[in-house]
Simulated assay, not measured.
Amino acid sequence: MVQIAWLGKKSPFCGNVSYGLSTTEALRERGHQTHFIHFDNPRNPVGQRTSLLANDPDVSLPYLVKSQVYTIPSPRALRELRDSLARLKPDVVHASLTLSPLDFRLPDLCQQLGLPLVATFHPPFDAGLRNLTAGTQQLSYQLYAPALARYDRVIVFSKLQADILERLGVPRERLAVIPNGIDTHYWKPAADGETSSVLRQVKQRLGESRVFLYMGRIATEKNVEALLRAWRLVSPEGCRLVIVGDGPQRMVLQNTYDTPDVLWWGYEENENIRVALQQCAEVFVLPSLVEGLSLALLEAMASGTACVATDAGADGEVLDEGAGIVMSTQGVTTQLRTLLPVLRDQPVLNGELGRRARQRVLERYTLSRNIDAIEMLYADLLEQTPMAA
């Protein structure tokens, strides 16, 4: 059994949150002890201390600003983190990096405490630098690389991502390619004749139209407007585009593309409802300009939904060789203008793509495979640093 201090996010909902919660839960189920250290204390009065009980699985740190993208900790956060780690005495610290100034201080802190340090590095990318957003994300990689080189291990989601960090100076031996994993017993196609109350509720709201689905943040890098422009140009008869999520662009886009064949579902906190939405969808579309390895895409694939995504980040690798349809990040509206009528007219093709998508997840992207690899990484690291065990 390994005792793990997991530093990550529990809110607001994003891929980092899903990754941290699912991974720590799976590690606990395998007998490991996890302490989840996260930013969740915005109004902690001066003098009130963070919980440091050794048997308390969660520790909250104070912050000034927290968003889906980045976190600005309180000036007290580093001290409270140091006190927490000294009290908990974990075997390993695993930081699911939150794009926070603390990320750059962790190597020194853990070295002082004699604790092995693992990072999972989430920021999206497009190795081709084909757009302004990709260039901005590349700058974040350049900013982080010197700090990541001082972590004992850095988990990334694809070989392409590892290649980028290696070129920026992170030693190859410190990089571990461990793709995201999905619980395929939970994310799965609806059984024939399934009539659960959640599924009925979702179907009632969706109506009788065939469903094309986007699920994720509504922000510039997700390129949702390109999908909406293509949908308006094509207006596929008998189909409905469902947009699930929230973000800085939502209100502007909703005001511009508020038509009967577009359903703005909004942010959905209930995971059972998100599962039902994927099960009801015929096609999932992810038009991102940059990505890491999209959990929403893997969830759609595991649900047996036909998937269309750009080749940003590792998403093209996930869908290659017929597991889905891969677009370039350039000219997404034009490509979708061609693809949407084909997908509308070929439901048999969609069914086959959905079958292949689920098979790909079962072969490569299950949560159990992900946890196996993380356990092996911990064991290897602790074997090399016995003083931390």
Rank of each mutant, 00 (worst) to 15 (best):
A149T: 05
G169C: 03
A314E: 00
K10A: 13
V170T: 00
Q201A: 14
L143E: 05
P179N: 12
R210S: 14
A379D: 14
T98N: 09
D58T: 11
G169V: 03
Q48A: 13
A302H: 05
N223G: 06
Q33N: 00
A312P: 05
R356A: 12
T338M: 12
G8N: 02
P248K: 09
V283Q: 11
T133R: 11
V211E: 05
L85P: 08
A127P: 01
S209I: 00
Q204D: 11
P90W: 15
L102F: 08
G313N: 02
L381I: 06
P123Q: 10
G47C: 07
N180H: 14
L377A: 07
L339A: 03
H94A: 07
R167P: 01
G114P: 06
R172K: 11
P116V: 08
G169E: 07
K10W: 09
Q3V: 11
V211G: 04
D40C: 08
N223I: 02
L233I: 06
V342Q: 15
F36A: 06
V342F: 12
D261W: 04
S328N: 10
I325R: 12
L102W: 06
Y19D: 03
D40P: 02
T71N: 09
S288K: 06
L382W: 12
V65Q: 10
M251P: 00
D192P: 14
L297C: 00
D320W: 05
T366A: 04
E194K: 02
E299T: 05
P12Q: 04
V17W: 09
E29N: 12
H185N: 10
S288D: 06
R274A: 12
Q278Y: 15
N370V: 03
Y257C: 06
G331I: 07
V332T: 08
Y141R: 10
E173F: 09
F104W: 13
T259N: 02
W187S: 02
I155E: 04
P189M: 08
M301T: 03
Y378F: 14
V46P: 07
K203C: 07
E317C: 00
M301K: 03
P347A: 07
A191H: 10
D192Q: 12
L99Y: 15
L88C: 00
R229F: 01
E25D: 13
R369T: 02
E317V: 07
P146E: 09
V318C: 01
Q161N: 09
V342C: 12
L139K: 10
R76C: 05
N370Q: 15
L117T: 03
M327I: 02
P73Y: 10
V244N: 03
P45M: 06
A314L: 04
K66C: 11
M1C: 03
Q68T: 15
R79T: 15
V332M: 08
